[in-house]
Design a protein around this nucleic acid. Sequence first.
DNA 1: CTTGTAAATGTTATATTATTACATAACGTT
DNA 2: AACGTTATGTAATAATATAACATTTACAAG
Lengths: 132, 132
Amino acid sequence: MQKEHNLSKNQKIIFDLIDKSGEPMKAYSILFNVQKKGIKAPLQVYRALDKLVEIGKIHKIESRNVFIACQNSSCQISKATAFSICESCENVSEISNSKLSKYLSNFSDESGMKYSKYNLEFFGMCKKCKSK
Amino acid sequence: MQKEHNLSKNQKIIFDLIDKSGEPMKAYSILFNVQKKGIKAPLQVYRALDKLVEIGKIHKIESRNVFIACQNSSCQISKATAFSICESCENVSEISNSKLSKYLSNFSDESGMKYSKYNLEFFGMCKKCKSK
DNA sequence: CTTGTAAATGTTATATTATTACATAACGTT
DNA sequence: AACGTTATGTAATAATATAACATTTACAAG
């Protein structure tokens, strides 16, 4: 059983926004959207984002500097992430594939170095964009 | 046989710097280092970086916003990259593992979406840091 | 219940990373 | 030489993220 995290006020506001939007959001777009809720400064947003990433409620798509809600209910603290990114419409979806995650979690290179975390970003064209 | 790219003046200056440094470099640190060579503005650096990334001479480590020279002589146009990043000393090395690259190149998720590119970043502790 | 500590918040300023817009020059092909 | 493409130069600014400091809240230990 994993620890249940009680989100603080700002964390909750920001998580709810990202979760409901259903798509990747940029930090300053989040800021703009929560100003009516009293969150005024970038730092307030970044602090909540950092925490939400840390506890696995959201993920950062590094190549795009955007944040999405975790789409995999079982990963509460996820340091092993994989995403599919459409280079045309910028849609992002999280990949939950146990073979893939096992393969990567067990990967060890020539140096014998073992990895506790990874982030994988796949790029291509999604179905919708391909059919246009 | 792959196309040989003739680097332009700025591209060559910047590639040589990154290549010789042997470690990840940030864009503005590159700028600082090439000012004596007449490159004055961020844009001059970013344009050269973009081109060098495009032709596979360097790679961008997305989670760190740093650039390293390609360590894999065979990958001239590399859109399928994997790196090992030490979270303690921030050392980065490129992983050239044909099993891994085959596995990922052939990966296809439930949606049937096929990926032409990917970027994988592994995080852990390098040998040096572990032994401290 | 109060005291200590960790976590979260608020606020201002600033650092870092990256792009827009526009003008000019160099390169390679025909 | 004329053309299109690629690269360069320059100024301004946009977008992303953190430092520093003061204060408040949450909550467990005594």
